[in-house]
Every structure is written in structure tokens, then in C-alpha cells.
């Protein structure tokens, strides 16, 4: 039997069927003698199994008609412009990864306080605002230019019929929105707005509320203020660092429009 030193490289070769058959036994013996390498091998195998499982369904899907047509010549000769944009989703993965991390940080901030009811909602809304409103490029997951999709998507996730309020009269334009965790299991929609000077406010809406109340809240030590309402079945907070009167004005308008949307 051939005798040689194995290395991590051989784990990949063994996994990919590239290890010569006559080395297989010696390799297995080496794995047994090196628990760390054995664990690594097992982990790679598990990841591969998961990857295969995640993609297995694709093979069973029927071939889409448009691909069949492309092959058998009934497709338009010129590719439609939108189609050459498939690669954008790859670029978007980078953005999503950043968004995920942001949510992680926001989550830690909001759950570690452990407040109750109203305060908890307000704290979560403020934590989200502090993190995302400060982001120039990654503030939102879906931009205002895709407003219809934004509203549908967030409505489906949050479980409320959401309409992004028009706050132009108060000087604010919609930037976009994102989905966030809320409470123990829930989800919240965050809508971000900006005025001509770049001042940002956010709306935080969730379907996680059994109580009815309203009020304003500022974290100990200052920072942005939240104006919130809890109604049966949903809760809303408007967060920003505006003069109280202006924030209250924005909040009233936003609340009225959200309410009209939810009950429409």
C-alpha cells in the first residue's frame, strides 16, 4: 500500500471523487487518526448535502415555455432589454448581506433592553431608525422607485395592508423601506423618508399589538423621539429628530394615511 502524508487538500479530493482508489484506505485511516480533519470532512459533506437538497427541486421543474421557445426558434430575435439585467440580482446579494448584518445589530440593540409594550415598540423603532437612517447607501432594501412592490412585499410579510403615506405636504419624500424583526416573533415594516435638507424620519409598523395607547418616547440620554400609537392589531411609531411640533404634524398625517390604508 502506498504511504504518504495527507493534508486538507485531500479532504476536498476525497469529497470530489478525485482521490485515487488505492489511496482511499490510507486516507480513511488518516481521517480516523485526525479528529479535527474528520470533523472538517463531515462538515463539508453536510454542507454539500444541504446545497444539493436546496437545488434538487430545480431538476424536477418543467422546462419553462420561454426556454423551449428560445431553443425551437419562436422567441423574438432580439432579447428584451430587461433580460440582460439578470446579473443585477448577483450584485444585489452583496446588498442583502449587508442588510442582514444591519438587522442583526439592530436586533441586539432592541432586544437587550427588554422593555414592555409601548416602550418596547418605541425602542425598537428608535434603534432601527438610529441604524438605518444613518446609512447613506444601504438605508433601505426596496427603494421608493419600486413603491408598488415595496407596499405589496411589506404588506405580505407584516400581515397588514400597508400604504406608504405621502408626506410631501410635510416636506418629506419616501426613500424606501425594509423588513425588520419586531417583538418576539413578529415582523415590522420600516419606511424611511427624507426632506430636502437630508433630514430623515422613519415609520415603523407592526401587527404585533394587543394594547391600545399612544404617546411619545425618547430613550434615556436623548436621541431621536418616537411618536407612537398602539391600536388593536397593529402598532405604529414615527421616529425622528425634528422639533416636536413638526414631528407631531408628520406623525398625524402618516397615521391618518396608514389607518385609511389598513382599513380600506
Amino acid at each position: 500500500m502506498t504511504r504518504r502524508d495527507f493534508s486538507e487538500r485531500d479532504i476536498h479530493m476525497a469529497l470530489d471523487g478525485e482521490l485515487p482508489g488505492e489511496e482511499r484506505m490510507a486516507y480513511e485511516a488518516w481521517l480516523e487518526a485526525n479528529p479535527e480533519m474528520k470533523a472538517k470532512s463531515a462538515r463539508y459533506i453536510a454542507d454539500r448535502t444541504a446545497m444539493r437538497a436546496a437545488l434538487a427541486g430545480v431538476m424536477d421543474e418543467p422546462v419553462p415555455a420561454r426556454l423551449r421557445q428560445a431553443l425551437f426558434g419562436q422567441a423574438p430575435a432580439k432579447a428584451p432589454a430587461w433580460r440582460s439585467r439578470w446579473w443585477l440580482s448577483a450584485a444585489a446579494a452583496v446588498v442583502l448581506a449587508v442588510g442582514g448584518l444591519g438587522g442583526y445589530v439592530a436586533g441586539i440593540d432592541s432586544t437587550s433592553r427588554g422593555g414592555e409594550g409601548d416602550d418596547q415598540l418605541a425602542e425598537q423603532a428608535i434603534a432601527a431608525h438610529v441604524i438605518y437612517a444613518a446609512e447613506k447607501r444601504h438605508a433601505v432594501e426596496v427603494p421608493a422607485s419600486d413603491k408598488d412592490h415595496l407596499q405589496t412585499w411589506l404588506s405580505n410579510r407584516v400581515g397588514l395592508k400597508l400604504v406608504a403615506p405621502d408626506l410631501a405636504a410635510q416636506g418629506f419624500q419616501l426613500v424606501g423601506g425594509r423588513l425588520l424583526p419586531a417583538g418576539e416573533q413578529g415582523k415590522a415594516a420600516m419606511l424611511l423618508y427624507e426632506d430636502a435638507k437630508g433630514e430623515r424620519i422613519s415609520l415603523f409598523v407592526t401587527a404585533e399589538s394587543a394594547a391600545t395607547s399612544k404617546g411619545t418616547y425618547t430613550a434615556e440620554g436623548g436621541g431621536p423621539e418616537a411618536v407612537y400609537w398602539l391600536d388593536k392589531g397593529y402598532a405604529c411609531a414615527v421616529v425622528g429628530s425634528l422639533p416636536p411640533e413638526r414631528l407631531s404634524d408628520v406623525a398625524k398625517s402618516a397615521y391618518g394615511q396608514l389607518l385609511a390604508g389598513i382599513s380600506s
Binding site: R85, L88, R137, E141, P143, D146
Partner: peptide
């Protein structure tokens, strides 16, 4: 972020 919405 424009593209993020599309991927979502």
C-alpha cells in the same frame, strides 16, 4: 439598493 428589491 435598487437592485436589492429585484432580488427580493
Amino acid at each position: 439598493p435598487l437592485e436589492a428589491g429585484e432580488a427580493q
